[in-house]
Amino acid sequence: MYAAFAANAFQTRLAYRNQAWSSFFGQLIQVFARIAIWMAVYAGVASVDGITLADMITYAILATAVMGVWDHALLMRDLDVAIKTGDVAVFLLKPLHYPLYLFAAHCGNLAFNTLAVVLPVTLIIGVTYGIQPPASAMHGASFLGFWALSFAIYFLLAMTCGLLAFWLMTAHSLEWFLTGIMALFSGSILPLWFFPPALAAVAQYLPFAWVAYYPTAVYLGKLEPAETGLILAIGLGWAAVLAAGVGLLWSRARHRIVVQGG
């Protein structure tokens, strides 16, 4: 059943062809921008802290094009609309778990974004500037695991904020907060290895780092193998905590809908 929701979301996205083209171009420009920045700052420098320009180009492609399509705004707006129109109450009547339903729908979105945005952008930029292969087959495989974890953590973070809107009544502000936090702490613009040590010490344990920084660092082979296992474990721990949080928030929210009629 949930697979059908995913397929449905995928098809809905297909129906808006102009939107697909625009997200593709928007994303392409953004990746170009990130790469231009790294090329500018690396002008005349071969490597900084053991990181080369080629590393940073690959980093920009993965963190911006691959993980950058996680669109929490889309999810939060879906949720916000459902709350404001009262549609969310309708879901309670159906034999399904609403957060799981949203997860399925956003897997559909993910599939669409991967095909329509991520792959073409990666291909174009990769051909233009060159993308590095994973540090090894092992690293490549771990990257896939981290990539899935990244999507899960992003989804849970967005869900948490979206559900908080039940009480704060302003999904809009929460969306901006999350955007801000992600911009800095996920490492999507600047990898944590370039952070000042004090900031990095904090940021490396926050769940946001698993959204863009760790998957890319793993791909590039910048983490020790032993460390990788530990980081994966912490990331899974965060996902579990967030999932529990979402479960709790949802049961409260559901209670609230049932008792107060939304």
């Binding site: 900084v48 704060l168 302003t170 929460l174 969306e175 801000g180 911009a183 800095l184 370039f194 952070f195």
Partner: peptide, 28 residues
């Protein structure tokens, strides 16, 4: 209430991006 929270959230969000840019510029 929502509007004031919005002001804070948006300023925070921009400040956060600028911090990332500042860190790049300061580092390089």
């Amino acid at each position: 209430g929502a509007m004031i929270l919005g002001w804070i959230a948006m300023a925070f969000s921009y400040a956060s991006v600028y911090t990332a840019i500042a860190l790049i510029v300061l580092r390089f």
